[in-house]
């Protein structure tokens, strides 16, 4: 029986003005814009060749994968600055395990274990010691980086295991890079986790209003601990992928990745203030940053200029995000 209901007293303020939520789509529009721009200006430099496009995928896989986990962290209203350092340390622990004869599985366990361990430290300090995640992970970012340099006295650890190198980076299955498969598989998992499981729902609830979430029976501290374990795990995997692609573990891998990863997440439409998150947005954000990097390299700009542009992108993205919040 369709109840007649109460007459809507008054439309919610601004409900009528909402119209097209262009902010939700800005990353896609921007991405298409970037692609068109580079494909026109850099056509003769081979930007649009399959080889170069697959190259972009290879270069962005680690950022995408860390971005997936970072989406959960930022959705709870927290942040993790230590992902780059974790990737560096994991590339080394993974490489050390392989070079000491523990094989692919040994390397996998060592690399991921390292990440999870650091994630656990981050998560415990944020939840049990109630230190803001910005400070905790700023600390572990430095400490873990130092540990990575100290472990081998800054020397790289070569990996001669071809199976490892194939699985974690340099391999292609037919025309498809293994790195693309990693990215796709984890994107699907993360998307389902965020949209379709109670863990994902409770992650968004925690970031949307922590007090209310607690009153509704969400164990917010457990959720926060889990999301930091997530970034630890994925940063560990990213470290292994760096090692596999470069056939070595090295302390300098992942340097500055936190910047790219956070930029990708925010650009994708996840709110830095928590409560709103999108996995697909993050991946498109990551690929877009990768594409910009790639295009700028082809144009002949160097790393310093790339960093400047990345920093600018973050600030712009947060500015747009803030406007949406105010409304």
């Amino acid at each position: 029986m369709p109840s007649k209901g109460i007459e809507p007293a008054k439309p919610a303020p601004f409900a009528g003005l909402k119209g097209f939520e262009w902010r939700n789509y800005i990353v896609y529009i921007a991405f298409i814009g970037v692609l068109i721009y580079f494909s026109v200006t850099l056509y003769s430099d081979g930007f649009m060749t399959t080889g170069n496009l697959l190259n972009i995928v290879r270069q962005t896989a680690t950022i995408s994968l860390m971005g997936l986990a970072m989406t959960f962290v930022i959705s709870t209203g927290e942040i993790d600055l230590s992902v780059g350092s974790i990737a560096a340390l994991s590339s080394l622990t993974g490489a050390l395990a392989v070079s000491h004869g523990f094989g692919v599985i040994g390397g996998l366990i060592a690399g991921l274990g390292t990440g999870v361990l650091v994630g656990l430290v981050n998560g415990m300090l944020v939840t049990k010691a109630a230190i803001p995640s910005f400070l905790v992970t700023l600390g572990t970012m430095g400490a873990v980086k130092g540990l990575a340099m100290w472990v081998t006295d800054t020397a790289p650890v070569p990996i001669v295991n071809d199976t490892f190198n194939f699985i974690f980076g340099s391999g292609d299955i037919g025309p498809i890079p293994v790195l693309l498969i990693w990215t796709l598989v984890f994107t699907v998992i993360a998307h389902v986790l965020l949209r379709k499981t109670s863990f994902g729902r409770q992650t968004l609830a925690t970031g949307g209003n922590e007090t209310a979430a607690r009153f509704s029976g969400v164990k917010t501290m457990r959720i926060k601990l889990l999301v930091f374990l997530g970034t630890g795990l994925m940063a560990g995997l990213a470290g292994l992928l760096y090692a596999g692609r470069m056939n070595a573990g090295r302390f300098s891998f992942g340097e500055g990745d936190e910047l790219s990863v956070i930029a990708a997440v925010i650009l994708g439409g996840t709110s830095l203030f928590g409560g709103v998150g999108t996995i697909i947005g993050t991946v498109v954000g990551a690929i877009m940053i990768g594409t910009i990097n790639n295009g700028l390299i082809i144009m002949g700009l160097d790393v310093s200029q790339q960093m400047m542009i990345k920093g600018l992108i973050i600030i712009l993205a947060v500015m747009f995000g803030k406007k949406a919040i105010k409304k």
Partner: peptide
């Protein structure tokens, strides 16, 4: 204090008490 502003009405009402599918996913 007890609502999550960024979630929908349905998501708020059944938060932590959602119906699940056979696979354990949320049955929105």
């Amino acid at each position: 204090f007890s609502l999550i502003p960024t979630l929908t009405v349905a998501q708020n009402i059944f938060l932590t008490r959602e119906t699940k599918t056979a696979m354990g996913l949320l049955d929105d």
